[in-house]
C-alpha cells in the first residue's frame, strides 16, 4: 500500500439532487477525483459536471487527529468541493440543511450515529434532497 492509500479513505459520494441547483434549473453535480483535489485549482469547472456520483478520497483523520466522521465529510465537501458561495443550500446551522436526507450505505444516517459515524473505506454516502411535487 502506498502512503497515500493509508492516509486517505476512498468513498463514494452521491447527490441525488444537486444541492447547488435548487435555485436554478440546471442539474449541477459535483465531481471530484484525487488529482483534482491535489490540483486544487479551477473553480466552477470542478463543481459543474453532469455526473451525480463521485469517488472522493477523504483524509483518514480530521484536523484534530480524530478518525474522519460524516460531520467532517460534510465540512470537507463544503471546503474542498463547493466554490458556490451559497453554502446555506447544503449546510445550515452547522448541519446538513433540513430537506436533505443523508444516507450511509443505504440507511438513514440517524441509524448510524449521524455526524459521528466514522467513515470506512468504500462507504457510500448519498445526499438526498426531498421532493414535494405531485
Amino acid at each position: 500500500m502506498t502512503a497515500e492509500q493509508t492516509k486517505n479513505i476512498p468513498l463514494k459520494v452521491e447527490f441525488t439532487y444537486a444541492p447547488l441547483t435548487e435555485l436554478g434549473s440546471h442539474d449541477i453535480i459535483l465531481k471530484l477525483s484525487e488529482e483534482q483535489l491535489t490540483f486544487n485549482s479551477g473553480g466552477l469547472e470542478l463543481l459543474f459536471s453532469d455526473q451525480r456520483k463521485h469517488n472522493v478520497s477523504l483524509p483518514r483523520n480530521d484536523l484534530a487527529g480524530e478518525p474522519s466522521n460524516v460531520g467532517f465529510l460534510v465540512t470537507w465537501l463544503c471546503e474542498n468541493l463547493m466554490k458556490d458561495p451559497r453554502k446555506e443550500m447544503f449546510v445550515l446551522d452547522d448541519s446538513v440543511r433540513p430537506g436533505i436526507l443523508v444516507l450511509i450505505n443505504d440507511a438513514d444516517w440517524e441509524l448510524e450515529g449521524e455526524e459521528n459515524y466514522e467513515l470506512q473505506a468504500g462507504d457510500e454516502v448519498v445526499f438526498v434532497s426531498t421532493l414535494h411535487g405531485g
Binding site: E22, L23, E88, M89, L92, R97, P98, G99, I100, L101, S129, T130, H132
Partner: peptide
Amino acid sequence: FPKPPPADAI
C-alpha cells in the same frame, strides 16, 4: 423530516 426545508429551496 422534523424540519421543513427552507421555502426558497422548494
